[in-house]
Computed example of a mutant assay.
Amino acid sequence: MIATRRPKLWVKFQSDITGIAESEIDIETIAPYLYFLGDSEVPALTNNYVSDRMQDGAKFSYAKYNLTNITANFYLKFTDWYSFRLAKHDFNSYFGRKGIYRIRTDTHKGIVRYVRVAALPDIEPAETEAHYALFSLVFENPQGLGKSLLTSNSLYTYSEEGWQLGMNFPNGVDLKYHYQNVSRFKIYNASDIDIDPYLQGHQLSVNYKFVGDRLTLRNKSTNTVYTLNYTSKGDDEILIDGIVTYINSSLATDKTNYGFFKLAAKSWNDFEVSEGELKEITFDFPFLYLPS
């Protein structure tokens, strides 16, 4: 018997060929009597070392999160061989496409994973003359992490679907990612890991306006410093996109110290303006989470 209360899996597909993203669907709607039974994923952390032929042992070099496999389990019920083959075709037709599947479950409504199908399952009746099949579909998660469904700058649009318990948000605190006319401010990174646009290529956008001949911003929590040498009267639109700077949509990284911001995980990041007058600033980035 299939329990009346079961896990839910929502999927949104984007084709490699057309680039068009479809609407998100409940996966149980793609075939009659198809039921999602749950999924599993294990973090893949790898430590890398460097060896010297003249020295004993090895020296630590760096650690990284690798690709993970996500196993999604399904139950399919059917009345006869014809309904079985039709349901099997519906399943293979949906998951046998070249593209990215954005998946999320009801246990983590606010966290999505961008995956590809590793291999289609061999869907067969559980035993001779059985009218049901149990099978698993394996996804590949290239980043090995999950992302928040919404980004930090969308906190003001709080909804049950976008944010949830278990996402490392401090209780009873009004989180802000947009400030005006400040010389010091705090940014909270609710991710399980540090946000690092330089070494890890993590998504981090900072939009700001300032007045002066130079602006210097320092994240005292991670000791990362960014300086822009440019005269602005406060009406220029300046964007730090990861490690690249744009002024009024024109590339301007050469006017900086080639600095960037790293955000410490599950903590407040204290920022200080030491040069220039900051008029407005907005941080926009997705939170990153380890599999659970």
Rank of each mutant, 00 (worst) to 15 (best):
P142A: 08
Y156G: 11
H108Y: 13
N171G: 08
R104D: 01
F95C: 02
G234N: 08
K176M: 13
P7C: 04
L149H: 12
G19F: 06
R53S: 14
A252F: 10
D106R: 01
S93V: 02
L215Q: 11
F139S: 04
Q164W: 08
G19C: 08
S148D: 05
Q55D: 06
G38R: 08
G96E: 03
I281P: 01
D196F: 02
V211H: 07
K77I: 10
K109T: 14
F95T: 02
H89I: 11
K176T: 07
T79S: 13
E28M: 04
A119Q: 15
W163K: 02
L251I: 12
H108N: 15
L45G: 05
T107R: 12
S136G: 05
V115Y: 00
Y132E: 08
V225Y: 05
F260W: 15
L34A: 04
D90G: 03
T4V: 11
K279T: 07
F84Y: 09
N48K: 12
N153R: 09
E160P: 00
S83W: 01
Y158C: 04
G162P: 05
S292G: 09
E277H: 10
R6H: 02
F210Q: 09
L288P: 07
D254A: 12
G234V: 10
E41G: 09
S159V: 04
I243V: 15
T231K: 15
K98P: 01
L175C: 04
Y230T: 04
I240K: 08
T29M: 09
S183I: 06
L9Y: 07
L263C: 01
L9D: 03
G38T: 06
